[in-house]
Amino acid sequence: MSPMLVVIKKEITDALKNKLFLIILGMLLLLTIVSVVLGSYQVKVSLDSYNQSISFLKSLGKTTFPAAPNLNPLSSSKSFVNYIGLLGALLAMVLGNASVVKEKRSGTLKLILSRQIFRDTFLNGKVIGNMILLFAITFVTSIITLVSVVVISSAPISSGDIVRMFLFFLMSFLYMTFFLVLGIFLAVLIPNGNKALLITVIIWLVISFILPQIGDTMDMDNQLPGGFFSSMGMNKADTQKVLDHFKFYETTRDGIEQMSPTKHYERVGFALLNIKPGFEQNTALEVLSIKWIDVLGLLAPSIILWLLAYMVFLKRENIYQE
């Protein structure tokens, strides 16, 4: 067995013995099940109401019926975006941090690196082992969601919808991978493991909450409830005249939002789940091709951090010290 595979296998078995990981995983699965069951049930209620109306109209001898409501069974996964943003990211950060820090604290890092394994191979094993775990978690939650939607909501779900759902969970996996790599990078960079975890959490707060909030706050129309421009009594033409003078401001505001992988995850997720209107007619792959910038916004930071982790891990002399 190659050294990398040995590390991968150990990483998976270690995570399954990590109490903190298991607690967060339990919470995530529980919330997923509850939200998807509730969401599916809501879809079922809407569908049942519509069917009842149709039956009533038929009993009155009517032959023309109102169009079926747009049920969107995929929307039952909407809350999952929030749970992944919160718990999924936390899970990944804990995994990433623990994977390096535990080796330092147990003194085994010296034993490993004095063996026939390159540092980059060791790091690859850590990342890949944990990615396999995260993939398994998102796969299980996607199956739970699909089964709940089909069984509970009884809403018609097409093969296109199923592909969309799985692609959405793939995006969730990419999002968590970013935080995993961030956790590993900071654990490699910062000698103190607790400090590394704290800084990882701070970065997560900035990325997931502060940057999107800054973006929203800087959006002029969000300054007042009901919309700034509407509250000022401005019509659309007047609104446009104002916005015309703020192009640079708008670009800056958007730039701040673009720095947040959470925002990218939300955008591509909502497009795939048909929560954001305008993508109903597109296939799942078309949605991804339209939203490629958001997919790249999830992938690129992970790749960049991974390369930086290589360089830091290669160079650091005091990597063994905690």
Partner: peptide, 18 residues
């Protein structure tokens, strides 16, 4: 990403793969 990748490869070449 490409620049960073090249930099990483050069970094490895300079310091050796450990």
């Amino acid at each position: 990403i490409g620049v960073l990748l090249i930099f990483t490869i050069l970094y490895f070449k300079k310091h050796g793969r450990r």
